[in-house]
């Protein structure tokens, strides 16, 4: 028995070496981008891979000011914050009704929302675009907020409904839910009780909105979000890698920060739906 244990230990130690190499590969690209962003254009051409000896921030200021990233950054922040707030309110209201309240068509409505999960934006690209034009939502930040809400909503409603359904029912029965105080029950009981799920959803939806490119490309035309801006920068500055790298770092920084702070919530949120909670 002990022999088996030590043999197993040894195997695990050996496999940890290729696993560590894979882990290095997972962080190398970001390291490369940071390192390149700190070099001057000439410095990069002379030595692309070596560690930067005298870091410069000129690329960051150029990307931020001349390449209009500051403007794109603002757009992304406004749209992401707006969409996440709307998503949380709408999903929590729907989750409350679907999980706690009893009304005819409850299951059908839940299924309609869940089924829309299988309609990604590519499948409805043309009519979705036409709908946005028809509702005068094209090229506006509120329009993009609504579009993000529509496309990221089904999963959020699913998670809130599943979360509320698992809370003990006595909680609501004690609250004497009737028509008059429904809104108050939602605000004073459901929102605070739903906090763990809302935090997870808030973070995941922040990632989705911030990282999106396709919906933003469709909805915004004269304006740009950060990811569309980076994609354009990639096309325009194929030779000026340090500038592109600086833009990449600026665009990725908020997400990296969120990942470092909220790793646990993100990790828990990913497995939702796959494993019974």
């Amino acid at each position: 028995m002990a022999e088996v244990k030590t043999r197993e230990k040894r195997i695990l130690w050996i496999v940890s070496i290729p696993m560590a190499l894979l882990a290095l590969s997972a962080v190398y690209p970001v390291f490369f981008a940071i390192n390149a962003a700190l070099k001057t254009r000439k410095g990069y051409v002379l030595d692309r891979f070596g560690l930067t000896t005298n870091p410069t921030f000129v690329n960051f200021s150029q990307a931020w000011n001349q390449s209009r990233l500051s403007e794109y950054f603002t757009n992304s922040v406004v749209v992401t914050v707006g969409a996440v707030l709307v998503l949380l309110v709408v999903a929590s209201m729907a989750g409350f009704a679907l999980a706690v309240l009893r009304f005819r068509g409850r299951r059908v409505i839940f299924m309609i929302i869940l089924v829309s999960l299988m309609i990604p934006v590519q499948v409805v690209l043309v009519p979705f675009y036409r709908t946005m034009i028809g509702l005068n939502l094209i090229d506006s930040r509120p329009g993009l907020i609504i579009a993000y809400t529509a496309f990221f909503l089904p999963f959020s409603v699913y998670l809130m409904t599943a979360f509320y359904a698992r809370l003990p029912r006595e909680l609501f029965e004690a609250a004497q839910i009737d028509g008059a105080n429904l809104l108050r029950v939602w605000w004073h009981i459901m929102l605070p009780m739903g906090k763990p799920a809302l935090v997870t959803l808030g973070i995941l939806n922040t990632l989705y909105c911030w990282n999106d490119v396709l919906i933003s490309l469709l909805v915004l035309q004269d304006q740009r979000t950060l990811m569309v801006g980076i994609a354009a920068l990639r096309g325009e500055y194929t030779t000026n890698v340090p500038l592109l790298a600086a833009g990449i770092c600026l665009a990725a920084a908020p997400i990296v920060l969120i990942y470092v702070i909220f790793q646990r919530q993100i990790v828990n949120g990913i497995a939702v739906g796959a494993v019974k909670g």
Partner: peptide, 8 residues
């Protein structure tokens, strides 16, 4: 974002 990954 796939844009970040793609660009790098």
């Amino acid at each position: 974002s796939s844009v970040i990954v793609g660009a790098i």
